[in-house]
Measured scan of single mutants.
Amino acid sequence: SRSVIRSIIKSSKLNIDHKDYLLDLLNDVKGSKDLKEFHKMLTAILA
Rank of each mutant, 00 (worst) to 15 (best):
L42F: 05
V29A: 06
N15V: 05
K30Q: 08
L23P: 00
L23I: 06
K13N: 14
N27G: 10
L14G: 02
L42H: 00
R2D: 05
S1H: 13
L14D: 01
L23K: 01
V29H: 04
D20N: 15
S12L: 06
I9K: 00
I8G: 01
A47F: 10
I45Q: 03
R6A: 11
R6T: 08
K36A: 13
L35C: 03
S7F: 11
H18E: 13
N15D: 10
L14A: 02
S12H: 02
K33D: 11
S32Y: 13
S1I: 15
L42K: 00
D17K: 15
D28P: 03
L42I: 10
K30L: 06
K19R: 05
D28F: 11
L46F: 06
R2V: 08
K33W: 07
L26H: 00
S32Q: 09
S32H: 10
I5R: 02
L25Q: 06
H39D: 04
L14N: 01
K19Q: 08
Y21M: 08
S3Q: 13
K13R: 12
I16Y: 08
L42C: 02
E37A: 14
L14H: 01
L46R: 02
D17V: 13
S7L: 13
F38T: 01
S32I: 12
S11P: 01
I8V: 06
T43I: 14
V4L: 13
F38I: 02
N27W: 05
R6H: 05
S12W: 04
I5E: 02
G31A: 05
D17I: 11
I9A: 01
I9W: 00
V4K: 11
H39W: 15
R2K: 12
I5T: 03
K10E: 11
K33M: 07
F38D: 00
A47G: 09
D24Q: 15
K19V: 05
V29E: 03
K40M: 10
E37I: 13
S1E: 11
K33N: 10
S3V: 09
L46T: 03
K19P: 01
H39R: 14
K33F: 08
L26M: 04
Y21G: 03
H39Q: 10
R6D: 04
Y21I: 06
Y21V: 05
S11L: 13
L22E: 00
L22Q: 00
L35I: 05
L23N: 04
S12Q: 02
I9T: 01
K36M: 13
N15C: 08
S7Q: 12
K40C: 04
L25T: 04
G31S: 13
L46P: 00
A47Q: 11
S11R: 13
D34I: 05
S3N: 14
V4P: 03
I16F: 07
N15K: 10
D28L: 14
D17C: 06
K10H: 08
K19C: 03
L42G: 00
K19M: 06
K30V: 10
S1K: 11
S3L: 13
Y21F: 09
R2M: 11
L23W: 03
D17F: 09
K36L: 13
N27K: 14
L22D: 00
A47W: 08
S32M: 12
K33E: 12
L22H: 00
D24G: 14
L23A: 02
L23R: 03
E37R: 15
S11C: 06
E37L: 14
T43V: 12
S3W: 10
K13L: 08
H39I: 13
G31M: 05
N27S: 10
D20E: 14
L22M: 04
Y21C: 05
K10Y: 09
L26P: 00
S1W: 15
K33H: 11
S12N: 02
Y21L: 08
D28T: 13
L35V: 04
S32G: 11
K40I: 11
G31I: 04
I5N: 02
S3D: 13
K13Y: 06
S1T: 12
S12P: 01
S11F: 11
S7N: 12
K33Q: 08
K36R: 12
K40P: 00
R2N: 05
N27E: 06
D17Y: 09
K30T: 08
F38A: 00
K33R: 08
I8L: 14
S11V: 05
L35A: 03
L14T: 02
L23T: 03
N15L: 07
L22V: 02
G31P: 02
L42R: 00
D17A: 13
L25F: 04
S32L: 12
L46I: 09
I45D: 01
L26Y: 02
L42N: 00
D28W: 08
L35T: 03
S32W: 15
E37V: 12
M41E: 04
D24V: 12
K33P: 05
D20V: 15
S11M: 12
M41F: 10
L42S: 00
K10T: 09
K10F: 07
D34T: 06
D20Y: 15
H18A: 10
S12G: 03
I45N: 02
I16W: 09
